[in-house]
Simulated scan of single mutants.
Amino acid sequence: MSLAHARALLFVPGDRPDRVERALASGAEAIVLDLEDGVAAACKEAAREQALATLERLARQGSDPAVAAGRRPPLLGLRVSSPATADGVRDLAALLDAPARPDFLVLAKVESAAEVQLCAAALDWSGELVCSVESGAGLERAAEIAAACEQVAALGFGGVDLAAELGAELAWEPLLAARARVVWCAAAAAVAAFDAPVLELDATAALTADCRRAAALGFDGKIAIHPRQVATIRAGFAPSEASIADARAMLATAQDAGAARHRGTMVDRATLRRAARVLARAEGAP
């Protein structure tokens, strides 16, 4: 599985290995051990050691909770601090000598393609990269960041940090233009886009609405910060049975007749691409 098939990226603080088993059993397609904002400044060194030890342990034993539940094992990721910071340099240096590497890296607060290329080259990285766009500078250069190198698999929208920098309310409407730009730039580079997390842990209705709006805008999935959010996110980004059936019928109609009318709508290349994407999302689900 690749990040292209993920809907929920569940973040776990790197210094809380006790939370990993629950994360693995959550149903998230990707688990991210966090060395950045999820860890207090005084705990960074310990988090680095514990996260890398967790990756080594999981590499030895496999992702048992997921396998036992009949699901594909989730991808395992590591979020490192910006390479423009001392903590980021230490994160990358520790990863160089790590006995086990994650499936993918999340690069925090990316502001240029050069940062991405530097990380990939320094680590001789062959896995996937998620580049988090969390600032005005990052948003301005999102297109070049998404196309920085072949390892970039997704852009992440860091709405919390961006809102703080802009002095904007952390709400949908004030950040709509920024969200749209992340989706556009990801699509132009043919990579995935993951929306910002909802911070209210008990607001299931708000999370459901947020997922629906993000999916409608073109996001492929969303960041989760607690296992209880995962099921809601996966449901919110899953194609409905009706849309799957309609996509199959549309493709069959076009195959039989070329350009055609389908349920009152003219079928053309654009609508067929959309239908194919719906089916790809449905078939790629674990």
Rank of each mutant, 00 (worst) to 15 (best):
V182I: 13
A171Q: 06
A188N: 08
A180Q: 15
A164N: 11
E173T: 11
L176R: 12
A192I: 06
V160W: 11
E200P: 01
A163V: 03
A187V: 01
R181D: 05
A171V: 05
A186W: 09
R179H: 12
W172D: 04
A188T: 09
L162D: 07
E165A: 12
D195L: 07
A190N: 14
L170T: 04
L176Q: 14
V191D: 00
A196S: 13
E165R: 07
L176H: 11
A192K: 03
R181E: 04
D161K: 00
W172S: 01
V160Q: 13
A171K: 10
A180H: 15
G159W: 06
V191A: 02
R179A: 05
L199Y: 00
V182R: 08
P197R: 09
F194W: 03
E169I: 02
A193D: 03
A188W: 01
A178Q: 11
L175V: 07
L166Y: 01
A171L: 09
V198S: 10
L166D: 02
A193Y: 10
A196L: 14
V198P: 00
R179G: 02
A180V: 13
E173V: 14
C185R: 07
L166K: 05
D161S: 04
F194D: 02
A163N: 02
A177E: 14
R181Y: 07
V183D: 04
L175C: 11
W184R: 15
L162M: 13
G159R: 09
A164P: 00
A186R: 10
A171Y: 05
D195G: 01
L176S: 12
L170G: 00
D161N: 12
C185V: 07
A171P: 04
F194K: 09
A178G: 08
A180C: 12
L166I: 10
P197K: 09
R179N: 05
R179F: 06
W172F: 12
L199R: 11
A196G: 10
R181P: 05
E200G: 03
G167S: 14
C185W: 00
A168K: 07
A164W: 08
G167K: 01
R181L: 15
E165P: 02
C185L: 01
V182C: 11
A192V: 08
E169G: 01
